[in-house]
Amino acid sequence: MPTQPPVRIGARGSRLSLAQSGTVQRRIAAALGANPEDPAEVERVAPLIVITTTGDRVQDRRLLEIGGKGLFTKEIEEALLDGRIDCAVHSLKDVPAERPPGLVIAAVPEREDPRDAFLSRGPERLEDLPQGARLGTASLRRQAQMLHRRPDLDVQLLRGNVDTRLAKLQAGEADAILLAYAGLRRLGLGHLPQSLIDPKECPPAPGQGALAIETREADQDLPWVQALRHQPTALAVAAERGALMALEGSCRTAIGAHAWLEGGSLKLIVEALSSDGARRFRHAGETEYAQLADPFGSAHDLGWSLGLAVKADAGDAI
Results as ranks from 00 to 15, higher is better:
Glu201Arg: 00
Leu184Trp: 01
Leu261Asp: 07
Gln208Val: 00
Phe281Trp: 07
Ile177Met: 02
Ala167Met: 11
Gln170Asp: 11
Leu140His: 01
Gly209Cys: 01
Asp221Asn: 09
Ala31Tyr: 05
Leu64Pro: 01
Ala299Cys: 07
Arg141Asp: 00
Glu240Cys: 08
Gly183Asp: 01
Cys251Asp: 10
Gln4Met: 14
Leu71Phe: 09
Ser274Pro: 06
Arg12Pro: 05
Gly22Asp: 07
Val237Tyr: 10
Phe296Met: 10
Arg241Lys: 05
Ile197Phe: 00
Ala144Ser: 15
Asp154Gln: 00
Ser17Val: 10
Leu273Cys: 13
Ala317Phe: 03
Ala259His: 03
Asp301Pro: 11
Gly160His: 06
Gly22Met: 07
Gly315Val: 03
Glu110Phe: 09
Leu189Met: 08
Ala293Leu: 15
Thr253Pro: 02
Trp260Thr: 06
Glu37Val: 08
Ala234His: 13
Lys69Asp: 03
Pro109Asp: 08
Pro123Met: 13
Ala218Arg: 08
Ala212Gly: 02
Ala19Phe: 13
Gly190Ala: 09
Asp38Lys: 04
Ile28Met: 12
Ala299Val: 12
Ala317Lys: 04
Gln131Ser: 04
Ser275Ile: 01
Asp175Asn: 06
Thr215Lys: 14
Ile177Val: 13
Ala40Trp: 07
Arg8Ala: 07
Arg99Leu: 15
Gly303Ser: 12
Thr253Asp: 05
Gln194Phe: 07
Leu211Ile: 02
Ser298Asp: 07
Gly209Thr: 00
Thr54Val: 12
Ala290Met: 04
Arg142Glu: 02
Ala34His: 12
Asp82Ile: 09
Arg280Tyr: 00
Gly83Lys: 11
Thr73Val: 02
Ala174Asp: 02
Thr3Tyr: 13
Thr3His: 12
His300Asn: 13
Asp175Ala: 07
Ala243Met: 12
Ala167Glu: 08
Pro101His: 13
Thr137Glu: 02
Ala138Lys: 03
Thr3Cys: 06
Gly188Gln: 11
Arg279Thr: 08
Arg134Ile: 00
Gly207Thr: 03
Leu189Asp: 01
Gly172Arg: 10
Gln156Arg: 15
Arg165Asn: 15
Val95Glu: 13
Pro223Ser: 08
Gln208Trp: 00
Arg282Asp: 01
Asp38Trp: 02
Arg279Tyr: 08
Ala272His: 03
Glu98Pro: 04
Leu18Ile: 15
Arg165Tyr: 10
